[in-house]
Write a protein that binds this DNA or RNA. Structure first.
Lengths: 133, 133
DNA sequence: TAAAATTCTGCGAATATTTGCAACAACAAG
DNA sequence: CTTGTTGTTGCAAATATTCGCAGAATTTTA
């Protein structure tokens, strides 16, 4: 356990909710200017393999990390407005069961990002002219 | 509809199953050496928005495209051996329904890549020394 | 403690993908 | 036929992430 690893772990643990690799990097660099981005990525990969943090792709290049010990949950990501809605783990448990029964496949559904369209955007779909695209 | 777009569409349609951006690019360049990668990506993004093709992240940097008119299905991707198991759409329909009922969220579950561990790797987990990592 | 082995890191290069921008083609208006 | 408008492309640069490699740090061994 090296000082840089310690700080990376700290940064992830201290994050209120989710944190991106770039934010972790900035945070660590502030205290220890010599650390390299590679180290951040390597450590995050390590932590993920050890089952300590989850990595979630929220789409649109937004990849965030979350400490496992702070609870599992998922995200509904709206493709229109970009909002993310937290989702309880239970909603996916039946899917996980089905996959296990029907395919003997142990799905890793600990922290998903599911793309779609939220209520708000669906209702305003007709009125709204276009996106900030 | 420009010639380059036409060829990109062709490449996707002609692919037996799935095809990556790099493969599409190579295929198109073979006939029309001037096309640029950007054009490929831009066209694929366009096709995706038009609902003509799906883009699926199989994990590990493998992103593949698939024409919508060739049927919806999903993939179970084994993190150990990298195998992908095709999955019928129906398995996810109940999840989609739940999300719609409970969250009024229209999930885009047309072509997912679900990470996990397949039967094979689960059984051999203890024997297998390590991966090709 | 010194030499050897192992692990981790920083750096720079490679990869995949996206973006800004200026040139270009198609097409409508005059 | 010239001009203007719009949409598409090629190129080069930016971004995010990964990878190889050599040097540092750490541990092991004697």
């Amino acid at each position: 356990m090296t000082p840089q690893r310690l700080m990376i772990v700290e940064a992830v643990e201290n994050s209120t909710n989710h944190i991106g690799a770039d934010e972790i990097y900035s945070e660590v660099v502030a205290k220890y200017p010599n650390v390299n981005v590679s180290t951040v990525y390597r450590t995050l990969e390590l932590l993920e393999q050890l089952g300590l943090v989850t990595k979630t792709d929220l789409g649109g290049g937004r990849v965030v990390y979350h400490p496992v010990d702070k609870g599992h949950h998922h995200h509904l990501v709206c493709k229109e407005c970009g909002a993310t809605i937290d989702l309880d783990e239970s909603v996916l448990s039946s899917l996980k069961d089905s996959l296990l029964r029907q395919y003997q496949f142990v799905a890793d559904l600990r922290h998903l990002g599911i793309q779609g369209v939220c209520v708000n955007c669906r209702q305003h779909a007709s009125q709204k002219p276009a996106e900030s695209k």
